[in-house]
């Protein structure tokens, strides 16, 4: 079934090392259109490193990354974002000095194309532009049910809400591929359920592909279409959840011999 679907993102033979330490070794997998792919693995397996390579924070020594059939390995982070790659961070990376609203509208940078001259004058077209983007952002705020914290400075918000704002910020970029780095880490079961619901809603409504890095196995098995398992920087399994759950290599990686 996967063969006749178009791959949005193709990682081939990615190798990344920091000095003598090999973080990733020949990692290859694809993300297909309209797919929710989960990347799992024990601590230190290289899950976040993979995301950092895709978004451009890390520069792998070998291998290539194709996005829509085009190599993006040489593009800087902000250019990759402009192509439609949005991500959230494992340790929430919000703009603490801005309000929820401003955080999300700041992520409209690509669509807004700010200009200091028209911005300084603020009349006419600039005001219209601000309002039109405000409308988009308000839709996202409604969608994530964070209306009550719209004008609160995010630095003072509780953890669960900060994670939600971060998801909103990624959505504001209107991405084609959404990379979520442990969106449910450190949440209580109720918050986790909320977040899972938002992720599924996003996946179904916005027609995008999602890469989900997550620790919670039960949840990953529930919501993902396909799972890639990493261990010690290598892909050890790649397949639908039912197969992964019984894969002896995966069980060994998690439980030991």
């Amino acid at each position: 079934m996967e063969n006749n679907r178009k791959a949005v993102l193709e990682l081939s033979q990615l190798t990344l090392s920091f000095g003598g330490l090999k973080a990733l070794t020949e990692v290859s997998f694809s993300l297909f259109e309209r797919e929710l792919l989960a990347v799992i693995g024990p601590n230190g397996a290289g899950k976040t490193s993979v995301l950092n390579c895709i978004t451009g924070y890390y520069h792998p020594q070998e291998g290539d990354i194709l996005y829509d059939g085009r190599s993006i390995i040489r593009l800087p982070v902000h250019r990759r974002a402009a192509l439609g790659l949005a991500r959230t961070f494992q340790n929430v990376a919000l703009f603490d000095g801005l309000t929820t609203l401003e955080n999300i509208i700041a992520a409209r940078h690509i669509q807004l194309k700010p200009n200091p001259l028209t911005g300084a004058l603020y009349f006419g077209p600039e005001l219209k532009k601000e309002i039109s983007h405000r409308r988009v952002v308000e839709d996202i705020i409604d969608f994530l049910e964070i209306q009550s914290i719209r004008k609160k400075v995010v630095g003072n918000l509780p953890y669960g809400q900060r994670k939600r704002v971060e998801l909103g910020r990624a959505l504001a970029m209107e991405p084609k591929v959404l990379l979520l780095d442990e969106p449910m880490a450190g949440m209580n079961p109720e918050e986790k359920e909320d977040m899972a619901r938002f992720i599924i809603d996003v996946f179904e409504e916005k027609e995008i592909s999602i890469v989900l890095v997550e620790h919670d196995m039960e949840l990953v098995m529930d919501i993902s279409d396909r799972i890639v398992v990493l261990d010690w920087g290598r892909v050890i399994a790649d397949g639908p959840p039912q197969e992964i759950a019984v894969d002896p290599k995966v069980i060994r990686a998690y439980l030991g011999d």
Partner: peptide, 11 residues
């Protein structure tokens, strides 16, 4: 506030 995240937002 967060230059890495800013870069990831296309800034």
């Amino acid at each position: 506030d967060n230059d890495l995240a800013a870069e990831g937002m296309g800034i």
